[in-house]
Nucleic acid binder design. Structure first.
Lengths: 239, 239
DNA sequence: CGAGATTTTGAATTGGGTCAAGTTATGTGG
DNA sequence: CCACATAACTTGACCCAATTCAAAATCTCG
């Protein structure tokens, strides 16, 4: 955890895990220049929108504390949850393309985000190559992530999807120094279902089934993974 | 179609439809600097790989002529086609994140691509803001596209997926000044199925059904859309 | 022209959806 | 802090869309 003299930077260094805010290895001078971003913090309660479809694009958002879900809507009312984002992740990349947000982001719990004005970010990244590279990597990582979900949605059966979902969560908690085997879900079965292309009942049944097999223990929204290896294996073995 | 004195640029201006190679409105001087990219052209035959999973990342590729499919592989042999790319589109964005290609790209027909060394592209985009912005938009557009496919895979029934697929193709041909209602598919039913999360038989049945309804005419790989509006409508009306 | 690949079509099967009822959480106002 | 209302979750029974398996037709190209 690099220490910084800048209030803004240190304020944001809490969301500094392998993501934006700071690429690692910036010089003191470069870090000072990040002040130009003049990053603002905003708080959100469960259910609040960070942005909505069609909103004008101003900034990317670094999640500082809490969690969000992103989703897109189809004319006929159908919706698809496209991701769950937690502290340290960047949100809002969809809007760069058209200057309007394509989807929307909703807080799943009390959250704090750090606003990163995109125009300034672009300007700054012309002067700081490591920041430029960092931004590119973040966008590319989102592409890779989305394509991974396409694989999941296009070629996995329901229990495999749920297992993959739990394993991804587990890894993400581990990366943050939290327990990879015990955690609280911050989203409903409905949300998980939408994300995985399943109905909420199917998600619930998959949880129950894994529990019966002794692979996990579920109590509403608290999850304990009892046998990570078995959960992993349940993705390949299929039926 | 802007004319350029640069052989490389004009060579590449054939793939200049709303995509990279040139952002519009570059000064003559800026266009000259694009020569630094020293863009190389490469030819591919049907079945050739443009890149494979794990390949070291060197460059993005602008498709000049022809078409490719991109796909990702899962350990257990499952594969997911993540997209079909045609002339004017940029391919290889997945590799920026880890410096290795995450998926692979296979030529669907005789194709020519223009190699864009990424390091040089980054350097150059620090000096040419409109190029920088252009690159960001391309990456963001890919994110939006992928999330649209997540919607399709996660919440549409089989015939809706096939209809959406045909409509997207239609639009893309139209954008290129080709007929939006008559075209040749360059991919197999198998590929379409993998892309749409369906079995090839299901794709075939959907085609046959739309044909029976008088919405399209299919003869193996040649498609005629007879009633665009009905095809559009078949996405919403659902059952 | 012929061999292999691709596509179509049919019949049977099944995984996940739908509908419905009951149970457990959550949060609010008294 | 409790009681109640509402939302979220679980479970069962039935059903249907898409898969699977199989066979025939058509296409491609060496």
């Amino acid at each position: 955890m690099p220490q910084s003299k800048s209030a803004n930077i240190s304020a944001c260094s809490t969301c500094n895990l392998a993501e934006l805010c700071l690429p690692v290895g910036l010089s003191a001078q470069e870090m000072q220049r990040l002040d130009e971003l003049n990053m603002q913090k905003h708080s959100f309660s469960r259910g609040d929108y960070l942005y909505r479809s069609g909103d004008r694009f101003r900034a990317l958002f670094a999640i500082n504390r809490g969690a969000f879900k992103t989703r897109i809507l189809h004319e006929d009312g159908r919706e698809q949850v496209t991701g769950f984002q937690m502290a340290g992740e960047i949100i809002g990349l969809d809007a760069i393309s058209t200057d309007r947000h394509d989807g929307e982001a909703v807080a799943l719990e009390s959250s704090v985000v750090c606003e990163l004005p995109f125009q300034k970010l672009e300007t700054l990244s012309r002067d700081i190559p490591s920041l430029q590279r960092h931004l590119h990597k973040i966008m590319s990582r989102e592409i890779v992530r989305d394509q991974g979900i396409m694989l999941l949605l296009g070629s996995m059966r329901s229990e495999e999807r749920v297992a993959a979902f739990l394993l991804t969560l587990s890894q993400r908690y581990a990366m943050r120094g939290l327990s990879p085997t015990q955690f609280q879900l911050c989203m409903s079965r409905q949300d998980i279902g939408s994300y995985l292309g399943l109905k909420l009942e199917t998600v619930s049944r998959a949880f129950s089934h894994f529990q019966d097999e002794g692979i996990i223990a579920v109590k509403t929204r608290s999850i304990e993974i009892i046998d990570l290896a078995l959960l992993q294996a349940s993705i390949n073995s299929s039926c």
